[in-house]
């Protein structure tokens, strides 16, 4: 599948109708989602024929993109039942077979390194400090091959240090810097739309 095609398909997905600020629910835009999964597949072979989990899947954009690129089994996990409902409908619309689990990522217990690849757009931790690091910590515990994640560029050094020193990663690489447009979703947003710089990371867990 071509990048443009993938971007078009995930661009049609339904997004949050009532986003919850405490969960930092922001949709993962089609531009970022398609590039993230396309890179994972075409540069590293981490998607097709693999077991892929989408941590904090929200409306399921990243997991859907993984399934479209040939992941054999996709699991989306989110704490919010409304988001999962939308994610299920999105998967149905695209005729994708995706499993969803309602769970707080911090309390997820899996048997060993059960999944090959984890993709995630974690809460950036602006409302709740360290939320993105909780996601990363847990992702590196259960992934066997790779973790793809987005973090604010301003936190780059901190993310690298934590991943390599504390979180069981043997590799941590910024693949590219992207612009994340945050639409005016919440009342406290004063500007119509802001652009923040985010890094697309690829982490490799220790075996």
């Amino acid at each position: 599948m071509k990048l443009k095609q993938l971007e078009g398909l995930v661009g049609d997905l339904q997004q949050f109708s009532n986003p919850k600020v405490e969960l930092e629910q922001y949709p993962t835009g089609p531009h970022i989602a398609s590039r993230m999964l396309f890179t994972a597949e075409n540069s590293f072979g981490d998607v097709s024929n693999k077991v892929v989990a989408d941590f904090g899947c929200g409306c399921g954009t990243l997991g859907a993109a993984a399934a479209l690129l040939g992941a054999e089994h996709v699991i989306g996990i989110d704490v919010d039942s409304q988001a999962l409902e939308i994610a299920s409908l999105n998967a149905e619309d695209l005729e994708l077979d995706i499993d969803y689990i309602q769970c707080d990522i911090r309390n997820l217990v899996w048997k060993g390194q059960a999944v090959d690849t984890i993709v995630m757009n974690p809460p950036f931790g602006t409302r709740k400090r360290g939320a993105d690091m909780d996601f990363l910590f847990n992702a590196l515990k259960v992934a066997s091959e790779a973790v793809y994640s987005l973090h604010k560029t301003s936190t780059r050094d901190h993310v690298r240090r934590a991943a390599l020193r504390d979180f069981n990663a043997s590799g941590a690489e910024v693949l590219c810097e992207l612009r994340y447009d945050v639409p005016q979703l919440y009342k406290f947003h004063k500007k119509k739309e802001v652009d923040i710089a985010v890094d697309l990371w690829r982490f490799v867990p220790k075996k």
Partner: peptide, 8 residues
């Protein structure tokens, strides 16, 4: 609807 609720 196929979704296990593992919330504690």
């Amino acid at each position: 609807k196929g979704i296990p609720n593992m919330l504690l």
